[in-house]
Design a protein around this nucleic acid. Sequence first.
RNA 1: GGAGAGUUGGCAGAGUGGUCGAAUGCGCCGGUUUCGAAAACCGGUGACUGUAACAGGUCCGAGGGUUCGAAUCCCUCACUCUCCGCCA
Length: 425
Amino acid sequence: MLDPKSFRQDPSVLVEKLKWRGYTLDVEKYHELEDRRKNLQEQAEELQARRNRISREIGIAKSRGEEANGLMHEVSTLGDDIKLRSSALTQVQSELQAMLSEIPNLAHESVPLGMDEEGNIEIRRWGAPRAADFAFKDHVDLGESLGMMDYGYASKLAGSRFVVLRGLLAGLHRALSQFMLDTHIRDHGYCEANVPLLVNQGTLFGTGQLPKFEEDQFKTSEDPPLYLIPTAEVPLTNAVADRIVEDPELPMRLVAHTACFRREAGSYGRDTRGMIRQHQFEKVELVHAVRPDESYEALEIMTGHAETILQKLELPYRVITLCTGDMGFAASKTYDIEVWLPSQQLYREISSCSNTEDFQARRMKARWRNPATGKPELLHTLNGSGVAVGRALIGVMENYQNQDGSITVPDVLRPYMLGVTRLSK
RNA sequence: GGAGAGUUGGCAGAGUGGUCGAAUGCGCCGGUUUCGAAAACCGGUGACUGUAACAGGUCCGAGGGUUCGAAUCCCUCACUCUCCGCCA
């Protein structure tokens, strides 16, 4: 959520900034609601103050054993009046809240302006795509001809956008996640967390998935309403929800390996082949909670942690800065890391690292105590994939494929594969 | 699933329907003392909102209700703990 104070000061600046996020702010509606809110609040508080004062006097009078009938009569009608106004106030406040809840975050000044992915800017590349000394197969052909990847089986079980992995390929998938977790825990100083995959509405509100993106979530039950997490960012970031964190606890670095669940509503035609876009996939997720003046430094560090994974796997990749129109709802700035897929001769997203500044923190009331002021202030939260396990598997399969359709196991994964060096029939 | 107990400030823990945002202890901050420290003593120490600053308002798990007035009484819900049953 954006700071309500910035609205009261100068909404016109926000209108321009939000336009670049693809959001049209209804300033008229905002002003109308805000004026009503202020009015009602002043009235309600004025009445409450009167009631408090008189009731106190009644108490004093009675404790002296005096009669207080006059005072009691004076205040007797106040209660209803207060009730009326404060329920009107609550109504307006929830309308305002609803409006603010659906406004995306503002982009950092360093983010390129643009309306869609055309505006993204590549900032670096690592590794060289393998020379095409034979025709590269894609991961589906490779997996199916090895007999280790089965879409028919999966669709019988659950429908489209699912897969069953078997044998060494299932093992390679598991090895990837273990390797990533170990690297972040051992080398990058993260605290591992094992978290619920089902969360409540408040938790999803905190990170920004609700109320606006309800249709992207899998809702599992009505009473209580629980949702499958679309990413471990949700349960990890909420570690600081409703807290005032003491300064020495920062920066906080959390990592979790979880399954993630997405409806993929609105992406019907896209990436229907293979493991690129599934309803269920696994991801190793990184989350930082940091002091506000350190969050952009943290974004570079976190992105570096994700890159380390690809470097150790020796997978060619590039890093791009998303433009204003292509970023997610909660982000102030996002780097996407894209891995080279030889079958498509393209870089495809494998990680996305974002600084949300205080946008999520405000929604979830995540604060830290600033030693300089002694006061609680909103902290900053970041999240990034470190990295998507399914897509990393695709990257390994395609980049490590051999002409005969076998797949060489990357060096760093061999300890996790009990010494297996090659996947073949 | 059954029975019971609980939820109050950073923590522990009082709280009679009426100057209770809330005793006390611990912790923390400042001071006195000390060469320095400990101890002792003195003082301070919740959050949100609001204001130029005061004032004012809200918050004792959440939401309703009773009342002139609710941390305190009533109802609903959530969560925690204990015991019993079942169970990976």
